[in-house]
Design a binder for these strands. Structure first.
Lengths: 205, 205
DNA sequence: GCAAAAGTGTTGTGTCTACACCCATGT
DNA sequence: ACATGGGTGTAGACACAACACTTTTGC
């Protein structure tokens, strides 16, 4: 029997997101966010790896640790993956989720908020995009992740000015309806980088 | 005896900062960051409150959960307090800390980084400043927290434009050496508010 | 030629830093 | 008067959104 000073159960939970066809989707397992309980002396990431195929993810970061309604602790992680590399599973649009535990719903919201914020001051989009892409394709990904419309023109200018994107070789042939062939781009870096560190109160020159 | 599937010890750790005489200081307890081990079914904040006088703090937010070198888990919190309300204790300038455990040193660094980032896009300065203050006094606080020089002129303009600061009644009488009496200001809000949400990729009008 | 899609030029707006200058007080 | 610290005016740099316009393709 566990006495009153023994620690509680601790769970690692993954909120894994992808941008698919203009919609942000979250991966569910048996109708809930995937999670695993920590074994003794097990690192958090190891437990997370038992719940989610972490090696497939392009970016993982910790969200927060909270006390669940049953008094167990849970540490939640945000995972991002491009559709092309996304593992098979029960992907659900974040806008129309089935009924989740209150904690899980809050975590999905925290993940969406975190992603939205980081898209505007980091290069985290790399983790949702394929190796190369057109600006139109990237626009669809950003639209899904930001959950508001994005102009392709300005998206290109902002990301190129910040040196987040660079040209890749080649062009994408137009579809049957014609149109100018689109240039291919890629993210300059495949890991997280802060690109707009100080909005104000920069250090003096 | 604890078997191999029983959970590990979990600690709540506080990284409490204040800005004192142009220096950012952290509160130590017995030469280390204050911490307390969670009892069974105890909320994280309750354990933190046993280690730190949370009620004195003007702002508290979770930093991260990590695995300590002894395999125990720890959830760290950032706490901010104005010097005037700061509890007595072993306050040390962050620039010249005694030798700390590697985990604790990393947490202090994480706290400094978090504070610096949030100062530039939120009103979090309220948690380091007294109820009313002159721009010069606030400049000293920002200089300490940002760890770089700050122009009083621009500080005032940025914070007033963003409606983070507002005028308070009265003026501060000049010192013995003369000078124009300084206007008093106060933070418009006493809780965290994001003031510069989207640096780029704003939603369309 | 015409529609469609991609991409560039340009303008206007807002926010920031830097610095010159003016203001109000003590001695 | 003059030194001292407080505060404003203003100019220049930059980043951004919006939108008109040009380019390149399929049919």
């Amino acid at each position: 029997m566990i006495d009153s000073t023994s620690p509680d159960r601790h769970e690692a939970i993954g909120v894994v997101l992808r941008a698919c066809e203009g919609q942000l989707e979250v991966l569910l397992t048996s109708g809930a966010l995937p999670g695993a309980t920590l074994a003794s002396r097990e690192p958090l990431e190891a437990a997370l790896a038992r719940a989610v195929d972490v090696s497939a993810l392009a970016h993982v970061e910790q969200l927060e640790t909270l006390v669940l309604s049953d008094c167990a602790l849970a540490t939640a992680y945000l995972g991002l993956v491009p559709v092309e590399r996304a593992p098979a599973g029960d992907w659900r649009p974040v806008g129309s989720l089935p009924r989740l535990a209150a904690d899980h719903a809050a975590l999905v919201l925290a993940a969406r908020t975190r992603l939205r914020a980081k898209l505007s001051y980091t290069n985290v989009g790399f983790a949702l995009a394929p190796a190369t892409f057109t600006i139109s394709e990237l626009r669809e990904i950003y639209t899904a992740a930001l959950e508001h419309d994005v102009s392709a023109t300005n998206l290109q200018r902002v990301l190129v000015r910040r040196r987040v994107l660079e040209r890749a070789d080649g062009r994408r042939a137009p579809g049957r309806t014609g149109g100018r062939p689109a240039a291919l781009f890629r993210f300059r870096l495949g890991r997280l980088e802060v690109t707009d560190e100080f909005a104000a109160l920069r250090p003096p020159r």
